[in-house]
Structure formats: C-alpha cells, structure tokens
Design a binder for these strands. Sequence first.
DNA 1: GCTTTAAAAAGTAATGT
DNA 2: ACATTACTTTCGAAAGC
Lengths: 207, 184
Amino acid sequence: RLRKWQKRIKVSNAAERNLSQALQELERMASNLSIPNDVRETAAVIYRKAVKQNMIRGRSIEGVVAGSIYAACRITNVPRTLDEIASVTRVKKKEIGRTYRIMARYLKLNILPSKPDDYVNRFCSKLRLSMEARKRAEEILKMAVDNDLTSGKGPTGVAAAAIYIASLITGERRTQRAIAEVAGVTEVTIRNRYKELTEKLNLTIEE
Amino acid sequence: MSEMEKITIENIVASTSLAEHLDLSKIALALEGSEYEPEQFPGLIYRLKEPKTAVLIFRSGKVNCTGAKNLENVKKTIDIIIEKLKKASIEVYDNPDIIVHNIVAVYDLESDLNLTDIAMSLGLENVEYEPEQFPGLVYRVEEPKVVLLLFGSGKVVCTGAKEESEIEQAVIKVKKELQKVGLI
DNA sequence: GCTTTAAAAAGTAATGT
DNA sequence: ACATTACTTTCGAAAGC
C-alpha cells in the first residue's frame, strides 16, 4: 500500500517535471520565433491535450512541443513554416511535420489547409513593404485562388511570387533572392509561380 | 469492370516461403549481383532485369517480391529465383503459395481538382491535405481499406489494396462522393 | 519506431551544364 | 536558363535492433 503511494507520487512527479520542462521548451522556442502570447497559450493547451492522450509515447517532448507550436500558429491563421520551427529545435522538419499531422488527426484539431495569404503580412513585414504592396499581393492571391491556381502548390511559394509581383507594381522592387530568403523557398520556385500567375491571370507590371 | 481498364497497376508487393531455412551467404555467392549486408538489413537483395523486379530473401526462407506490375510477373520472378537456387544445389519448395500484400495503382478522374474544397467536403477528420509538405491529398478509405492520394490534376494513386477489385471499388467510391458534392 | 525494396502522383530542392 | 537527379507522401511483408 505504501509502495503504491510511492509509485503514484513518483509518476506524478515525473509527469509534473516533464510538463514544466515541456512548457519551458515551448517558451524558449516561441521567444526565438517571436510568437505572441495568445498563440503560445494555444500551443500549451494543445500540448496538454497531447499529454492527456498519451501522445508522447515513442516521441520526444521537443518534437511534440514543436508540433504544438506549428499547430497553434496554423489555428490562429499566422502559420510559421516548418523550416522556421525547425530552426529553433534539433528536431528535423520531417519529424515535426509527421508529429503535427498525427496530432491534428488524433486530437481532432480540424485545422484548415494553410493558404498563401496567411503568409503575406509576415513576409511583407520582414521585407519592409508598404501596406499598398500587401494589399496588391492579397488581390493577386484572391485571383489565384478563384482561378484554381493553387491546388497542390506550396502556399509559401505562391505567396512569395504574389509579393514579388506586388513589389514590382508598387515600385518597391525586392529581389527574388530577398523574397526567397524570407519565404524559405528557392528563386526557381518564385520564377515558376511568377510565370504561372502572370500568364494565367494576364497580369501586367505597368501601372 | 467499367473502370478497371482505366486503372494502371504500377507495383505489387507479395511474399512466399521457399524453405524452412536458407543460407544467405551461400545464396549471395550463387546470385550474381545480389547485395547482402546483414549489419544494414537482414534480407538479401536481388534484382531481376526481366521482369524488372526486386526480391528480398530472408534466412527464415521467406521471400518478398516487389516491383511487378501484374501477378504473372510475380509468379515468373519467384520461379526464376527457385530455378537459380536449384541450380546452385540449394533445396527449395516447388510451387509455394504466393500472397499479395499490397497493390499500387494509378487512376485518372480526368478533371482538375480543388483539393482545399475536397478536404472540407470529405471532412477534415478523414482527410489530410498539407500542400507545404506534399502536393497530394491523403484520403484513408475505410471500406475497402485503402489509401488514396488525390492530386490537383485529377490523377489518383491507390495503395494498400490486396485485390484489384478493391482498387476499383475505392475509385468508384471517391468518384461518386466527389460528384455528389459537385467537386468533379 | 528504424533499417530495405519498388512504384506512381506533382511540387520543390539541389546539382550540373 | 535549362536539365537531371533526388527527396517529400501513401502501403505492405520480411528479421532484427
């Protein structure tokens, strides 16, 4: 009987230790990514749900924390890329993506697929582009979605191309290299999306 | 059998048993070009050029065959392995039962798909669509129990089926579900 | 869970000329 | 700027770590 109590206390201690450790990790990663408090709280709620469902078995605390942050960013419609999340952890991007997908299903998070315009504000801020440029980029993206030009394409690549076009239109030109850097895609991808958007939407860079 | 002809089988995974025990080191010498590195993987790897398949042979006598596009080639592959082992004075069974475990096939819905709309219509609980990670939408069908990968082009990959009929059932099923919600 | 095999889909990435 | 190769996802069996 005494043994049983000791065991319960031990398990409880271990669980508490792991939880506080996880929440510290969450704060560290979130700080490095400049993630706002409400999103951190959402991530913490998701992490606790994962713990309650015994989802840490066979997975690392760090991986689940990373997945929770990725999910929280998606839920609040301000997605970070897997590369960004991976940059503040030792967990590989592939593993974070796998963990996130398992959490989304198992915890029934019902998260909608990310869209290109979810990235516009963040990318444009990093590029120090005007509100006018952001507005232009969003207009282009609406046209792209309405014309079914985004199925299967990476949202960040499509967003990057739209921002590139918008920067040309407003005369605040940013190089493909600079945009590729903040969007985490290659210049080749921006060129491919740029070609498709300008051709299929008949966009002209005058005005 | 209406959709069957439009389904292209790309790969079949099957297994059989050729003996109670096999000496893989001996077989490695008998089969030219085979790879056997027990430290890396317990099975011996052997590739055939015709039919173009790959075989994994284990010391338990179990054998896996992958890469065949039809059942005839699976049988042909196993028969070739049996003949080669016999010529090397290695005793093996004659007509072992072959079990198909997985069939991978491609089908074409011949219509562009809006994967985001499909994800919401089929239900986010039943579907996985993460364009940042993979361009295809993953749809786990429960009956028949197979997995479909839907692409924006309308091409569909089916995997997990053990019989060709399951592929046809699954394909007809998604087609009807997509027609019902007007996304095809 | 991982390791190895084969194969398709379409997008993106890394190298090479 | 192109092309080629490679990797992402799904599936299953095998024996062993």
